[in-house]
Nucleic acid binder design. Structure first.
Lengths: 282, 282
DNA sequence: CTTATTGTGATTAACTGAGTGAACGAAGGT
DNA sequence: ACCTTCGTTCACTCAGTTAATCACAATAAG
């Protein structure tokens, strides 16, 4: 059995493949037909219908659009025979299609005329933003660390959050004479982090309330907790539901002191996570 | 103005961007809202509604799902403010999403249980397959050349068809002592090809009927024409419509002599494209 | 307190896609 | 020559989704 990342739904492979193909833009019948075809060298409409729950009469439509997408070849005999291109070709075809679109998108977005904007003098000392998604959150974490002047305090709630990129950003901050402190939830993770950041202070948090086990009913786990210059804060969490793992990470990021978010930091301090001398109440 | 590949529809950039985003899975309102947001630093629902044609009351839904996809950040103030992540982050986010799916798909397809198949003793001497799409066709061209035992004759109808990969495949065939002959439609293209294939015989076809100019009304152009071991044939064409260029290339590939396709080859010979000594009528 | 603006929810209309069956033509058997 | 079967296309219904509009509650502004 192949070990699989991503959705670990316990589906037979062909159901899972159908789902993925639909997410990649194929209709249900198209996806099912393609999967059915991929399981054999070639087949007729009937063959496909038998192994795919696609009504026989609709196999033709489905296969025709698959052909127009370059995923299937057709033999115009009677009965017609259909053949799926190889798995590797299919993957390459689909991938290049999307990569092309994304790159066009990049151009088009880059060429947009900016809208003349009201000078909102946005009150940068109070903003609170909600964001979600692993990449979006990682990216903002990076921005915040990059912009740090004096101090970066980071608590890592799950190993998947701590990647090489993050490590580099932390080291870069440190090289700018920013005080960098990294915390983890348990010894094990702390050791891993310390290994990749030998020059940086790593501690293990004693904050029970950060740990899921405190509230057994709550499947929400703290994922990251970042404090920059005691002025900008980011907290993110994720749910373990559906085994989707680190997906659907949700985060809040705020700037400014008199910000509801600061409460969290106070609690941090109150619980004694951070050494008092490092983070005093201003 | 940015030079753009792909659909050259003469649309304003923001319309084009909306279209691309929809192709990438966003709903109309989501796409329009995102584009509107990308044109400014941040904005309220009203701002978005004013610069996109999204009804104000629906902006909230749209933006919410954009947030859940990690493309937008939300400031929960009153009025709420929304901000699009940077173009680069957006492109990266979308791309990695699809790349991930494709790689999962590859795994899932690879793990499919093959269906026990009727021994159809498929009449390999008569099959004719229709296929479409640049990549699918290129790929089969490659397969055919790879499988050549004695002779490969290729006529290139458009420069875009002749890439490095194809050149390599031809050289590899030649190194296996396969006779390789390449034709082009005009001198210019012929020279280009001869340059990359110094050891291979390149000729310029005199076949008027291959050239579009013969039938001015027909926008269909011959793209490639491949004959392998006088036993397998591939012909492909494309339409110039919509300026989509080489997209929607359509091809036919057949194996076996008494195959309707062989007619094409006979005509080829009749018109004197190929030297008689190289390709005689059996 | 009044009014304009902001946000939520419900409702309808338009569309798309899934599912089903009629109809047509071709192939083959009687 | 006729009928039957099979392959294929087409037209239609039903359901779910999305676009579009409105009514109303909540909030801020004057």
């Amino acid at each position: 059995m192949v070990v699989r990342l991503g959705p670990m739904k316990d589906l037979p492979d062909h159901k899972y493949a159908v789902e993925l193909l639909q997410q990649l833009g194929l209709k249900e019948y198209e996806a099912k037909s393609f999967v059915a075809l991929s399981r054999r060298q070639s087949g007729t409409a009937k063959d496909i219908s038998d192994t795919s729950e696609v009504p026989r009469t609709r196999v033709y439509d489905a296969v025709r659009t698959l052909e127009s997408k370059g995923l299937v070849e057709t033999q115009h005999s009677s009965p017609q025979m259909f053949r799926a291109i190889s798995i590797d070709e299919a993957a390459t075809t689909l991938e290049s299609e999307y990569v092309g679109r994304v790159s066009s998108l990049r151009d088009a977005l880059g060429a947009l005329d900016p809208i003349e904007e009201e000078e909102d003098t946005a009150d940068v000392t109070h903003e609170v933003w909600a964001l979600s998604g692993d990449t979006a959150i990682s990216s903002r974490v990076g921005q915040l660390i990059e912009g740090a002047d004096e101090e970066v305090i980071l608590v890592v709630g799950h190993e998947s959050v701590f990647d090489d990129e993050l490590a580099d950003e932390l080291l870069a901050a440190r090289d700018r004479d920013v005080v960098v402190v990294v915390g983890s939830l348990d010894e094990e993770m702390g050791d891993v982090i310390q290994d990749s950041l030998p020059e940086i202070e790593v501690f293990v948090s004693e904050l029970d309330w950060l740990d899921q086990s405190t509230l057994p009913d709550d499947e929400t786990q703290i994922s990251r907790l970042l404090l920059v210059d005691r002025e900008a804060i980011l907290v993110s969490s994720y749910r373990e539901t559906f085994g989707e793992g680190r997906e659907h990470e949700q985060g809040v990021f705020g700037r400014g002191f008199d910000n509801g978010l600061v409460t969290i930091v106070r609690r941090l301090m109150a619980t004694g996570l951070l050494t008092e001398d490092r983070l005093s109440t201003e």
